[in-house]
Design a binder for these strands. Structure first.
Length: 408
RNA sequence: GGUCCCAUCGUCUAGCGGUUAGGACACCGGCCUUUCACGUCGGUAACAGGGGUUCAAGUCCCCUUGGGAUCACCA
């Protein structure tokens, strides 16, 4: 048993996509392997973009993949008083200050800096202001050190270091009083006792300023592991135009959760030459140090292969249950008649790569209004039944010709 | 542009100083099979380039090139 504490902290601004799912999976796997604690936290401080549908979509996706959490879900919007408390503390300690620069002023400064080839960072106008300006709106900025270096040993990427002079005084509280991401994430991870932060590597550049915040607050700095991102076939960030990115879309396309889990874990992680891993094997063999450092391309063909593998080896009873909704979509309810579903499944397992393919194949057993592939029928139906078949097709209003010339 | 990161077959990867550079997906052949599929056997295919270090470099160091991330009162 260990007291490692991990978390998955998505922001509810859309469905659970494959990248997030993999991050969640890595966290879950490590927690289960080490007997630690896995926490789910919803980062909904951006009230305008966060939706309840997205929250539910995240729960649904995690449930489908079998990623159960031990604590939470926690919602950041319910913790605003806590964040305010810490802002107050930093202000009192002189580690943060009120900045009265308007968004427009800052924007203008940023533009001119960019134009003149300078770094577009906050110039510190309000850094040494003495006393408040009553009635004027302000944001709160963390007073960052201007020299020295901040470094950390990433569990995946190794040592990464930054010169503090590259950092500027980040805003921790907006003018409307709400806290910002880099602040809430630190307060939450610190107060929830997170010991290891596994997240996407688009956060690498946020890490040094977060480390500085931990130190300013007097909390121990957790270990970090930044997992590389998932790319599309053209090596750009995976997005809708590469195909489905929502994990639930894969369920709807007839994929099995164990295939998705197996595929996702092998994208970026490996264990010798092994390709197929049961959930128990993953819990036993997974290690964050074995995760690769470079981004990986999402390969739908391999996912399909894995899905076929799990369908072939799957329990017919369970596959039958998973197949029912696909059958109903096709106007078939196996409960009202026809052969036993599990026996139907057994005849289809070898040749079905998805539950959609299996459902299409199963129609044969439950409906009469389907047509044989003309070529195959011509080749394999006995000559004497061909006229019958043609008559049937004719009756149904379909009339592909089946001639005896094409019969061997 | 600044900062940070990355780099083995088309793709996912093994490799952790000495290998005929291995496996998997995909692809191409053979076998099996009255179709398809499954299975099985085999094949094509990679260390980005250049300097070092070393008896020896895919493995260590530097540079170049290429790719990515990030520079918000988003997360």
């Amino acid at each position: 048993m260990s007291n490692i504490r991990l978390r998955f902290a998505p922001s509810p601004t859309g469905y659970l996509h494959v990248g997030g799912a993999r991050t969640a999976l890595f966290n879950w796997l490590l927690a289960r392997k080490l007997g630690g604690t896995f926490i789910l936290r919803i980062e909904d401080t951006d009230v305008a973009r966060s939706t309840e549908e997205s929250v539910n979509a995240i729960f649904e996706g995690m449930r489908w993949l079998g990623l159960d959490w031990d604590e939470g879900p926690f919602f950041q919007t319910e913790r605003f008083p806590l964040y305010a408390e810490f802002v107050e503390k930093l202000l009192k300690d002189g580690k943060a200050y009120k900045c009265y620069c308007s968004a427009e002023e800052l924007e203008a400064k940023r533009e001119s800096a960019l134009r003149e080839g300078r770094k577009p960072k906050y110039d510190g106008t309000c850094r040494n202001l003495t006393g408040d300006i009553p009635g004027k709106p302000f944001v709160v900025r963390y007073k960052a050190p201007t020299d020295g270096i901040t470094a950390f040993d990433d569990l995946i990427k190794g040592r990464i270091s930054f010169n503090n002079e590259e950092l500027d005084d980040l805003i921790i509280q907006r003018s409307d009083g709400t806290p910002t991401y880099n602040f809430t994430v630190v307060i939450d991870d610190a107060t929830m006792g997170i010991t290891t932060v596994i997240r996407g590597d688009d956060h690498v550049n946020n890490t040094p300023r977060q480390i500085l915040l931990y130190e300013a607050l007097g909390y121990p700095v957790p270990r970090f592991a930044h997992v590389p991102m998932i790319l599309g076939a053209d090596k750009t960030r995976l997005s809708k135009r590469h195909g489905a990115t929502s994990v639930m879309a894969y369920r709807d396309m007839g994929y099995l959760p164990e295939a998705m889990v197996n595929y996702l874990v092998r994208l970026g992680w490996s264990h010798g030459d092994e390709e197929i891993f049961s959930r128990d094997e993953l819990v036993e063999k997974f290690s964050i140090e074995a995760v690769g450092k470079s981004a990986g391309v999402f390969n739908p063909d391999k996912l399909l292969w894995l899905n076929h593998h799990y369908i072939k080896d799957g329990d017919p009873e369970r596959l039958g249950e998973l197949l029912v909704p696909f059958l109903k979509e096709r106007g078939v309810d196996p409960a009202v008649g026809g052969p036993a579903l599990s026996s139907v499944v057994k005849t289809l397992q070898e040749r079905s790569r998805t539950l959609i393919e299996m459902a299409d194949g199963a129609l044969f057993f439950y409906r009469d209004d389907f047509a044989y592939d003309p070529e195959a029928a011509a080749k394999f139906l006995k000559p004497e039944v061909v006229p019958l078949y043609e008559a049937l097709l004719d009756h149904l209003g379909k009339a592909p010709s089946l001639t005896h010339e094409s019969v061997e």
